[in-house]
């Protein structure tokens, strides 16, 4: 590989990290919030797909992509609230409900989304942050979506909320020790309901990014499991929002690896390279799952820990 080849691949990886990471980021931040409150919502893959479909449909009908984003957040909120509400019932397993919600969300999106596969909807605008640069490749890389910046801000905001606010403390204590939370007079179920609903809203916005920005159209294979990978990513990020950001960028870059290498002529073994994000997921799960120190960061009330 020549020097220009190396640079092309590096730029492609960075550009890929920025382009592909946003849905990972929103879903993982949403899941992070939900898990901090002591519940696992595996259904975010379904929420992501439903959010994508709703955003596309609303943008198509109203002509305003931002209205689409708001609608996707609303749909995600409702999906999350449904999960939270069902989990309030006695002897209900949140993992099982999550899987049901995943099928429900995807199925509903495909069912309602059929008429929106062919049309094109107004897309979200992009912010050309790199236009002052002379290099078109770098300028292209810095042509970012406003949603990416929102996600960036959300990661830091959530981190700050967990550390420094009363609301953050309530979520954390609910997630770490429900009995202690109850002793403090906190409505554990209500906190979890809101945490799950807000987490769902975040995942819905991730879906809006998929259908309204990149790749920017609605069809059935749109998510290809990104919602599930993002849930795994929360464990890798050890339930810390800022690490969710890093992990999302990392996964975005991994997704760009296969196409980028093939475009500069490294073509052997592309199946393996294309599988990079999935291989990475497995390695991360194996690496972090075995260690005690990972568990020490996990919210104590998570059903996978108990």
């Amino acid at each position: 590989m020549t020097d220009t080849g190396v640079i092309t691949v590096l730029i492609a990886l960075l550009a890929g990290a920025i382009r592909v990471s946003t849905p990972f980021l929103f879903v993982s931040l949403g899941e992070c919030l939900t898990e901090k409150s002591g519940r696992v919502n595996l259904g975010l893959e379904g929420t992501l797909v439903l959010g994508a479909m709703v955003a596309f449909a609303i943008s198509y009908h109203s002509g305003s992509p931002w209205l689409g984003v708001a609608a996707a957040a609303g749909a995600g909120f409702l999906m999350g609230a449904l999960h939270g509400a069902i989990c309030r019932l006695p002897r209900v397993n949140d993992i099982a409900i999550g899987i049901a919600m995943m099928s429900f969300g995807t199925g509903l999106a495909l069912f309602l989304g059929k008429p929106y596969i062919q049309p094109s909807a107004p897309r979200l605008p992009s912010l050309p942050l790199g236009d002052w640069l002379d290099m078109p490749a770098l300028a292209q890389m810095l042509d970012v979506s406003p949603l990416f910046l929102v996600g960036l801000a959300l990661a830091f905001l959530l981190d700050w909320v967990f550390r420094n606010t009363r609301a953050g403390l309530i979520v954390r204590v609910t997630g770490d020790d429900a009995a202690a939370a109850r002793a403090l007079g906190i409505g554990v179920d209500r906190v979890r309901l809101f945490a799950t609903a807000l987490g769902g809203a975040s995942a819905g916005v991730g879906g809006a990014f998929l259908s309204l920005y990149y790749p920017g159209s609605w069809n059935e294979g749109l998510s290809s499991g990104q919602g599930l990978m993002a849930v795994a990513l929360v464990i890798f990020a050890r339930w810390q929002p800022r690490r969710c950001l890093l992990a999302s960028l990392f996964f975005g870059a991994a997704s760009a690896l296969g196409p980028a290498l093939q475009s500069v002529g490294i073509t052997a073994g592309y199946y393996f390279l294309n599988a990079a994000p999935y291989v990475l997921t497995l390695l991360i799960m194996a690496g972090s799952g075995s260690a005690r120190r990972a568990a020490q960061y996990a919210p104590g009330e998570l059903s996978i820990n108990r």
Binding site: A12, V20, G216, N219, A256, A260, Q262, S263, Y271, A275
Partner: peptide, 22 residues
């Protein structure tokens, strides 16, 4: 560029961007 499957929208978009970049 081979994407690996018949319908992978995100990777198809990445492939299109990679070829444009190349």
């Amino acid at each position: 560029i081979f994407t690996g499957d018949w319908s992978l929208p995100v990777r198809e978009a990445e492939a299109a961007n990679a070829l444009a970049g190349a």
